[in-house]
Design a protein around this nucleic acid. Sequence first.
DNA 1: AGCATATATGCCGTTACAGCTATATTGCCG
DNA 2: CGGCAATATAGCTGTAACGGCATATATGCT
Lengths: 107, 107
Amino acid sequence: MASTFAVLADPHRRQILDVLRDGERPVNDLVDGLSVSQPTVSKHLKVLRDAGLVEVRRDAQRRLYRLRPGPLAEVDAWLAPYRRMWEDSLDALERRLDVIGREDGSR
Amino acid sequence: MASTFAVLADPHRRQILDVLRDGERPVNDLVDGLSVSQPTVSKHLKVLRDAGLVEVRRDAQRRLYRLRPGPLAEVDAWLAPYRRMWEDSLDALERRLDVIGREDGSR
DNA sequence: AGCATATATGCCGTTACAGCTATATTGCCG
DNA sequence: CGGCAATATAGCTGTAACGGCATATATGCT
């Protein structure tokens, strides 16, 4: 089974998830937004299903896909220890820009 | 240039970043931790460099790699809208477990 | 039943990537 | 200068992934 990280590596899959954030959608809606063929979208959906990131519900001929954000917690957990680090970096950058700004003002 | 997501898709690369969280390291240290060959590690480091996730400093024959967490902010930004969603799911799960627990206790 | 709609699957070609071995590069030291 | 240590690069290979087209499957409608 592919890791959640690997699943998110594909931009089309992230795009699908982004759309599903607004609520469940039939496959056709997803195809419209993606500029890839319907079979390709179906394949991406299978990957997302296997990763537990979406679930399906049947509605007549259509299948409505819905987001299951649970596995994203794994990504967030990995990211957590880094979060404060880049915040610190940005702070440092801001301080430096601030210094430059003051130097410029005193010219 | 590969997206940060794609760069993080490889577990070895994530592992390298994890090690570098503790401070800068020469390549050899990274090789020891990874159970892949030195050239392979060097290649991963190149990918990480190109993605702006690490930077190098020369120390005699060695190269010391250091973390640059900045690009991870992009991942975090993408993740942000989902965060509250899975928190909600977990809350719901906890509530359910809580109910079960109480039912069990009242038996 | 027969056709239309919606989605999934199979098959194929192409490309990208991760790994390895061998070799080049760079810097140190005797 | 010659050789060792550390790292990078080149070349090769196997595999996996993405995409497309054609086709299968499932459901609804008439």
